[in-house]
Computed example of a mutant assay.
Amino acid sequence: MIKDSQYDAGLELRRHMFGAAGAEDQVENTTDLNDKMQEVVTRYCFGDIWQREGLDRKTRSLVTLAMLVATGRSHEIRIHLRGGIANGLTEEEIRELMLHSFLYCGIPAAMDGFRAAEEILAESRETANA
């Protein structure tokens, strides 16, 4: 793996959005099969594209969630809901994004998004109340 300032910035953003489980744990538990993918995600996704000016992190989270709903990526929706909450998304914004998605993605995709949102928002509330 190439570790440089771009990689470090990506790891720091992953840590902010997803905690240690989505940052160090992911990187430290790579295998020969997936180590290059973890490097790509850390360096280019979070160390480059997510760091660009033009869109703030909250907006990037909304855009990312919309694309994940549209493509039916339930596992990634859950991950990015956690990241979106860390980036300042409110429950109302998440609800409106999911509701809006049914117009353009269809009811089944929107319902998958709502199910994921219910789960992650409940988890977030429990953490906040602990």
Rank of each mutant, 00 (worst) to 15 (best):
G10W: 02
Y104T: 09
R95S: 15
G10R: 07
F46K: 01
V63K: 04
M37Q: 14
I85G: 04
A109P: 08
M17E: 10
A130C: 13
G83I: 10
E123G: 05
Y104E: 07
T59W: 01
V69R: 07
P108G: 10
A66I: 04
T59F: 02
F46V: 08
T90F: 09
N87C: 10
M98G: 06
A21K: 09
E118N: 15
F18N: 00
A70R: 06
A110W: 04
D112M: 09
V27Q: 02
L68E: 04
S124R: 08
M111H: 13
D25F: 06
V27G: 00
R57L: 06
I107Q: 11
A116D: 02
M98I: 11
H80D: 04
A66V: 05
S5T: 15
I79M: 13
M17T: 08
I107K: 14
G83K: 07
I120G: 02
M98D: 04
F102W: 00
E28A: 06
G106A: 11
D8G: 09
A66Y: 02
E76Q: 08
E123H: 03
E28W: 08
L97M: 05
I85R: 04
G106L: 03
L13A: 05
G113M: 01
R14C: 01
W50F: 11
T30M: 06
F46R: 05
L13K: 03
L13S: 03
F46C: 05
G19K: 15
Q38H: 14
I107N: 08
C45F: 10
W50E: 07
L55W: 07
A110Y: 07
A110M: 14
V41K: 00
G19Y: 13
E53Q: 15
V27W: 06
I77F: 08
R43P: 05
R15Y: 07
T127V: 13
